[in-house]
Amino acid sequence: MAPPVIEAIRLGRGFGSVRALGALDLVVRAGDSLAIFGPNGAGKTTLLKLLATVLAPTDGTLRLFGEPELRPELRRRIGMLGHGSFLYGDLTAAENLRFYAALFGVENAERRVAEMLAEVRLTAWRDRPVRTFSRGMEQRLALARAFLHAPDLLLLDEPFSGLDPQAVLHLQEILTRAHRQGKTIVLTTHDIESGLEVCDRAVILCGGRMVWHSGRSVPAPSEMVKIYQREVGESHVGADSR
């Protein structure tokens, strides 16, 4: 069995009496790809931020790459694609990547930047300011940014949202290739079909708790939709009747 990349034991995050995430047990091994489904406010983003070590857990323990201490150095092995693109509108595509290459201490930065621009098919746009990019192009560049330092663990927060079908296909293709290369992927999404296209495991979060997990095999999308409605549906009714 592959070594664990993420080991969360009774992991939680809260402030005062309000818990954003509670008592989560989760093991993700190298080469796994995990989809996290759940309604808004279920704690998905909180979980990703905990995994990215930008948020410190208030309860339980989290080990990444088998290391008990979450040093900033671990972030060299983690690539994060967040809600925002993390890109500067006034800088060109290449300048943005070069900047992040410097932050992450990437060797041979120039070659790596060119490589990543080719990978996301933006070489022709390398010297254009990001402000002039379409949403899909910006998301591709954001992906190149997250992949730039060749991380072992990829964390993607709603990567498919706001993309046209063509861009979604392209993104799925890139992620599937990364998965085949043995990268570990954790992504959150509302899009059950796209999520399952890329991932071989799934969990459902609701109200800060893990209410369902797939084990080692994921169901078909139609089946998954039924499970989702069963697990999440009831509390959704509660929220709507407010």
Binding site: R76, G84, Y88
Partner: peptide, 18 residues
Amino acid sequence: LLERENACMHGLVTAPLD
């Protein structure tokens, strides 16, 4: 404000630096 656009501050925070 520069770092606010596209949530760039998160980008800085996810980088391995103090």
